[in-house]
Write a protein that binds this DNA or RNA. Structure first.
Lengths: 386, 386
DNA sequence: CCCATTTGTATATTCATTAAACTAAGTTTG
DNA sequence: CAAACTTAGTTTAATGAATATACAAATGGG
């Protein structure tokens, strides 16, 4: 029962955020255009724009083209008013980036991980962050926040309750990073982050309801409904890797049976490939060299992916399904099998306007997702304090 | 780009709606209490309450108990300011009700259906509605709207695209009813409506994220996330009856294989029961008379339901799962099998705070869901026009 | 060069919430 | 039992946001 009540300050805050959002999305843009598309009065826009100018969140450039009268003043988003740091903690690597406020990567660091003990990983992460901060250009707001994506179950307080592939259990990732760096920290499940990344900067920019499938060592799913990430009661939504697609099927590491990821993850692929194949990359190479066995293997994985996607479409009736993470590298040999399964199984009305795409950001989906989160949070906070 | 802009009128509208909502939820309540819980100033509350009084949406009763000072004036929601009509079109019946604005059923009519040809059903429905209107008490606003729940795929324009069990395809239900009765009409899928019904008036009143499983002749699912019904891109969400749970399993009427509803619907039950059993009710009677075979049958169905619920929980991390529609009648023999499957399969973190319940409204879930929709819509509209 | 047009600003108006003062009607206490 | 205190609710003035209006600035077209 906190923010239920409405008043002028809320109105102003929201309108200011709206104006800023429009500038971010449509720059270069003039005050007059903003008034036009937002429906706000030009005087209102003028006043809000002036505040944003003072806060250095936007800046003016020279006059634009006249359309038969006075030339407009062009406004731009000041994307280097601050910077965000994104961390993707994988099973055998840590990828960290420094981005501007529009999600452009300025600096990128990649570090292989020999082991995944929490203290070791944290020390690596902290070093990477510190070195990004050291290399960061000067700016009005500095580091506006740090985001981290983790392959595991993350609660809304930023604790990692369980990350089987890392061997983590109940680690206070958010608190630890906040204590070290004293900036806002956001922790998200790797699939949720990837979904946000693709939505904001990748393949999902035109869609409202997006299901992002992170097909890696396991399978996780990020669910974006009506343009916002759905997290579930505790933040655990999207564990569809453990959706049962085969009642009496294979045992899964989770203790259940017939889980989706037992059939169509990287692990499942390598298992099917047998002992003489040791990596996804090797298999892709073989497929590129027209190795029929390898191609067939990817086709099989595609089939299994298709069954899960069938369930997703019938459940969510989404605008778009995006397949990302490492298995998306094998798009070439999986896309047709997936489509065929959908055509043959999914309810026909649900298929009609559905968009099936592969990740556009590739290995950056997760890092760019968490930085987008951080930036969004910063902008909201900033718009509030005036 | 329509309702993106904020202004005083919107603020007022929202605050007024908030005040009304509080009165509806917490009546009897005083102006002072409303100011307290809403955070609005008492003068604001006073003014909004006076408008609501003039609109006859609320009324005052005598003074309440003093708490050490002047006695408060008690406010009530005027639940008979208007009435809503709800229709549940089933495969062999039409259930229609007249409710007040709080969802109390005042008149109820039930009509068996011999056949489901659209024109025939429509004529039955129209007659039932007309007779409800004729019996309706006088009121300020009269019929505030008509809602109908249908076992099929309904788009956002209120057309029934496909209702296999009724043999309907592309019928303009909403338009037809609007043309006849000239009041707002809302059409919803039967499971979506049931979800809303349970959320507003039944088992789900305390929860934010609710998955309602309508287990009848087929299976449909209503999805309520963050307190609002999720409908998907076209309105087709929740067709989880056709979620594949057994890759190489039974053929389903939809053309796919291994669909959930092929294992755990009323149809599946009767199929498993064999030729000498012809109805759910008969089986329940046998179970009540300690017929082990019948009990075992329900247990089996419970198991299969459990597998699907496992998928739901891992996907949505909901606060609550509600099982409704006809199979909920056999709760007694299904609840333990379902729980056992969940315990043995579902990720443990997801199980922790999960609430598993059965429908509280029984056969009224759907009708009360659509009337709740209609009332909500009316109240929003009403609060707008001032 | 004059004029219509477009951009943007300055000033006055409107209107919803809030603050403060006040009335109403009760309870508590010495 | 009366004075003091509490609580409920209204009235009046103040605040602040969007808007309406008037206006200044800058430009292109005849």
């Amino acid at each position: 029962m906190e923010t239920m009540t409405w008043n002028q300050q809320i109105v102003k805050k929201n309108n200011k955020a709206l104006v800023l959002q429009l500038i971010i999305e449509k720059e270069p843009i003039s005050r007059a255009d903003i008034a036009q598309v937002s429906g706000l009065h030009k005087a209102t826009v003028s006043s809000l724009v002036n505040e944003l100018l003072e806060e250095e969140l936007i800046y003016e450039s020279g006059p634009g083209e006249s359309s038969g009268g006075r030339r407009p003043v062009i406004l731009h988003f000041n994307k280097v008013a601050g910077f965000a740091i994104g961390i993707d903690i994988g099973v055998n690597y840590v990828l960290s980036v420094l981005t501007d406020l529009k999600g452009n990567i300025l600096i990128e660091k990649n570090q292989p991980l020999a082991q995944t003990v929490y203290s070791e990983v944290m020390s690596t992460v902290k070093n990477m962050i510190q070195s990004l901060i050291n290399e960061m250009p000067g700016s009005r707001y500095g580091i506006v926040g740090i985001g981290a994506g983790v392959p595991g179950i993350v609660n809304k307080e930023g604790s990692v309750l369980l990350a089987p592939n890392l061997g983590w259990k109940n680690v206070q990732l958010k608190t630890d990073l906040e204590n070290e760096f004293r900036v806002p920290v956001m922790i998200e499940n790797e699939a949720n982050a990837g979904a946000v990344g693709e939505q904001q900067l990748g393949a999902g920019q035109d869609y409202q309801n997006i299901i992002y499938i992170s097909a890696g060592i396991g399978i996780g799913v990020g669910i974006i409904l009506n343009k916002v990430l759905y997290q579930g009661r505790n933040g655990f939504s999207g564990e569809m890797g453990h959706m049962i697609i085969d009642l009496n099927g294979k045992l899964c590491s989770c203790g259940s049976r017939g889980c989706w990821e037992a059939y169509s993850s990287e692990n499942a692929l390598l298992e099917m490939a047998g002992k003489n194949t040791d990596s996804l990359e090797a298999l892709i190479k073989r497929a590129e060299n027209s190795d029929e066995a390898a191609k067939h293997l990817f086709g099989e994985i595609g089939n299994y992916l298709g069954f899960g996607i069938n369930n997703i479409i019938n459940t969510f009736n989404p605008d778009q399904v995006i397949i990302g993470n490492r298995l998306a590298l094998a798009k070439e040999w999986m896309v047709q099998p997936i489509r065929t399964i959908i055509e043959n199984h999914t309810l026909s009305h649900h298929q009609k306007e559905l968009q099936l795409d592969f990740s556009k950001l590739g290995k950056y989906s997760t890092v760019l997702g968490v930085t987008a989160f951080v930036v969004e949070n910063f902008i909201k906070e900033e718009a509030r304090t005036s």
